[in-house]
């Protein structure tokens, strides 16, 4: 599965470079490997130092990720540190897009304020997405 997934990230970059955010909808329809949310809990641990996952609208150095899937990117009230590109984004966060973005965040969006190398490993990234999907249903404390 590795090769199509890498290709997926490349598609995201190419689409953004040539046509902007609107075209990213195509990516959201691509198939995604199912990950394990419990392993994803540990993958997400590195993200937790900046991202809250609680229902209360509180933000760390990154925006809150409670129920992130389904939200329009770069628009959370109270978070004032989106990059210019992210603030002007027109797409809705889907598991597929998050998966593609986290392969190499700075390459995908050079003005991102997230100074992270992302999660290059496809398996770990799938686990992370599964964990975020669980949060989208439950919230971390439930």
């Amino acid at each position: 599965m590795t090769r199509p997934l890498v290709a997926l990230a490349a598609v995201v970059l190419a689409l953004y470079a040539t046509a902007g955010w609107a075209q990213l909808a195509t990516v959201s329809e691509m198939p995604l490997v199912a990950g394990d949310p419990e392993r994803g809990r540990l993958v997400f641990a590195q993200c937790r130092t900046c991202h809250y996952t609680v229902p209360e609208q509180i933000h760390g150095n990154g925006p809150n990720l409670y129920r992130i899937f389904g939200m329009v990117a770069g628009k959370q009230p109270g978070f004032e540190y989106y990059s210019v590109a992210m603030a002007s984004a027109e797409f809705v966060w889907t598991p597929q897009l998050m998966y593609a973005w986290l392969e190499n965040p700075i390459a995908a969006l050079p003005d991102t304020t997230m100074m992270s190398a992302g999660v290059p490993d496809p398996g770990q990234r799938a686990d992370l997405i599964a964990y975020l999907q669980r949060l989208s249903v439950l919230g971390s404390g439930d």
Partner: peptide, 13 residues
């Protein structure tokens, strides 16, 4: 340029 960045920044960094 932006496109060059997209293609190469990650690798260069």
């Amino acid at each position: 340029k932006r496109r060059e960045l997209l293609a190469g920044l990650g690798a260069a960094a």
